[in-house]
């Protein structure tokens, strides 16, 4: 307790009612000081995030500059339509997040809840599209490092629903069932405060499946384009079987001299450190980014609960602002990942 508060005790009660925020920690002089301290903290955290991601960008820059032809080849397996769609989704979620901060500052609790629900929904759509992208690649054997399957040996295109997609969808499906059940329970028991939380959570879980549908639609639309160059590469190697046998030798450390038919790019993509390394870096960067999205969703859900309890106002909006800064950073990283991974020509 500060000296002023002791001196002003009778006044303090009235003061607290109007001005003193219940969330102001006692070791801060005023809400602004608390806000500024938190803000510096979140910026420092974002600095560590930038430096953390820079390690992966460094790996990217180094291997791309050493083997540009491998990157040109491997990037064909990424669908730019899905990447662009996801970029739009994340940019929109950044807009709703920034709008949410505005709502918190203006005491618009309902607007803040809507903005946070939209942000969470966009995050789910993003993950749904990513699930389609990952499952499609895993079916084709586009896996990291030594798990990468040489693409000239993949002849049949996978049809129907991927088993990987089913595995990815288990948790969202459980969430959807749980949140819808929770919402129905709250609604039928006339617990509006709980329904206000369960409803947006159910929408968030449903948005994952919306993302999956978008992804399926764009992936099937983009398939013809994606398979064009792939088929061409497959035909460029004269004999598939001998190519495969040969590659085994190359991996062990045999000679590459007898492989005159394939061009230099084909030879280097199939080597260790070729396309397998591209996919290692691709999964590492997009996977860590997706983990950040999931982490962001957890804190956004926390903000949503607090928004329904009307915790935020013009003096106490720090948590919304800090989560917003983190969310924009995640968006910022995707802004660089999209052209660097999907748009290599």
């Amino acid at each position: 307790m500060s000296a002023t508060e002791v001196l002003d005790a009778p006044h303090h009660a009235e003061h607290g009612e109007h001005h003193h925020n219940p969330f102001q920690a006692h070791h801060f002089d005023d809400p602004e000081q608390q806000y500024d301290a938190g803000k510096l903290g979140i910026w420092l955290f974002l600095v560590t995030e930038v430096l953390f991601f820079s390690g992966m960008f460094c790996a990217y820059a180094m291997y791309r500059s050493l083997h540009p032809e491998v990157w040109e080849f491997s990037s064909r397996f990424l669908n730019p339509t899905l990447g662009a769609f996801n970029t739009g989704v994340l940019l929109f979620s950044s807009l709703t997040m920034a709008w949410g901060v505005r709502c918190a500052q203006l005491r618009q609790a309902k607007g803040l809840a809507i903005c946070l629900t939209l942000t969470l929904g966009c995050a789910s759509i993003f993950l749904g599209v990513k699930a389609i992208e990952y499952s499609h690649k895993w079916d084709l054997g586009l896996l990291p490092a030594s798990m990468y399957t040489i693409q000239s040996t993949v002849t049949e295109h996978h049809e129907g629903i991927s088993k990987w997609l089913v595995i990815f969808s288990i948790i969202p499906a459980l969430c959807l069932a749980g949140f819808v059940g929770w919402w129905v329970w709250a609604w039928s028991n006339n617990k509006k405060a709980i329904a206000d939380i369960a409803g947006p959570f159910a929408i968030t879980a449903a948005c994952y499946f919306l993302g999956v549908l978008f992804g399926m639609f764009f992936e099937s639309g983009g398939d013809k384009e994606a398979h064009g160059p792939m088929a061409a590469v497959a035909h460029a190697t004269v004999a598939h079987d001998s190519h495969e046998a040969h590659d085994e030798h190359a991996t062990v450390g045999g000679s590459a001299g007898g492989h005159g038919t394939a061009n230099a790019a084909d030879a280097s993509v199939d080597k260790p450190g070729g396309a397998g390394l591209f996919f290692s870096i691709y999964y590492c960067m997009t996977g860590v980014h997706a983990l950040h999205i999931i982490g962001g969703m957890v804190v956004l859900a926390w903000l949503l609960v607090r928004a329904t309890k009307n915790h935020f106002n013009e003096e106490y909006f720090g948590p919304v602002d800090y989560v917003g800064l983190y969310w924009h950073l995640v968006d910022l990283i995707w802004i660089y990942l999209f052209p660097l991974l999907y748009l290599i020509t």
Binding site: W99, R102, Q105
Partner: peptide, 26 residues
Amino acid sequence: HGFSHPMPVWQLLAVFAALIVLTALT
């Protein structure tokens, strides 16, 4: 608003529109 600086809605929408246009451009 105390120490807060609420962003005008038009500014938010303008920035979003610019970001979408730049994505289309890239």
